[in-house]
Design a protein around this nucleic acid. Sequence first.
DNA 1: TTTTTATCCTACTAATGTTATAGGATTAAT
DNA 2: ATTAATCCTATAACATTAGTAGGATAAAAA
Lengths: 143, 143
Amino acid sequence: MKINSKIRYGLRTMIEIASTSDVNGILQKDIAKNQSISLKYLDSIILSLKLKGLITNSKGKGSGYKLSRAAEEITILDIYTAFEQITFVDCICNKKFCDRSEDCPGRDYWIEMKKGFENMLLKKTLAQIIDKKSIIAKNHINK
Amino acid sequence: MKINSKIRYGLRTMIEIASTSDVNGILQKDIAKNQSISLKYLDSIILSLKLKGLITNSKGKGSGYKLSRAAEEITILDIYTAFEQITFVDCICNKKFCDRSEDCPGRDYWIEMKKGFENMLLKKTLAQIIDKKSIIAKNHINK
DNA sequence: TTTTTATCCTACTAATGTTATAGGATTAAT
DNA sequence: ATTAATCCTATAACATTAGTAGGATAAAAA
């Protein structure tokens, strides 16, 4: 079980966008260059992030990408699900996938595990990943 | 990202073996029948579980499979890793997989996430999955 | 208003991974 | 010996992934 390349590149792309200091945002070609991702492949990554509403841009010459909201308000679950739903096993979404679904201790467990996994991704924000110091600050406030 | 069929069948196989009341254990062909897994495919599932040391059997006619230790002492992580290592991303195991590894916030996160996932699988035992009542009992004792 | 820069979008393909099946070798109880 | 059962390697069909190709579209700049 591997995290696929779109999700990996997607996270790196979000980190890149969140990290830029340019008020006009960052160009796709610069993300591609900085992150060593082909411009064409990055196309589809960025499209997914846009459709999920995580980033915005204008079109045409001179445009640049920015986050749609603060990095503190973007979770890894947001980024992950821009590319795929978390399923783990098909019978979670579709009971008819397996005729044991009605009474299956295995299925019950996978459902529980899926929730735990989602929760883990939900608890982490893009801001926390970019700046370790912000975690310390947050913890301090929470106390 | 999906849990593959070997792990899914592997869990069901372990549940089946743990649930049998026969002191001689359960035959491979009966597991196959009860769980609707082909005898041949089950071959490789069982081989992995044996190599991991989770189940034992004698050979030849009349043999049967049993757990190597109590279901309370077998975690889902044990079962999962009988089939594959938890990697998520290749650069975790092998820094050379990507030349950014040395200083990559993304990689740092995946490592953290992997640990969280492992921990989740480690905290759950086969016994807990089979018998919900045992969880209640355990919780009671822990209090 | 033409040119240029850049994203948007669909289709395709090579490589890889998954899910089995096939065929027989080996083991040990009967 | 016979038979019931596992052990083990190879292979094949199928699905998914990772990435490329080619052009359409949009808007800033000249």
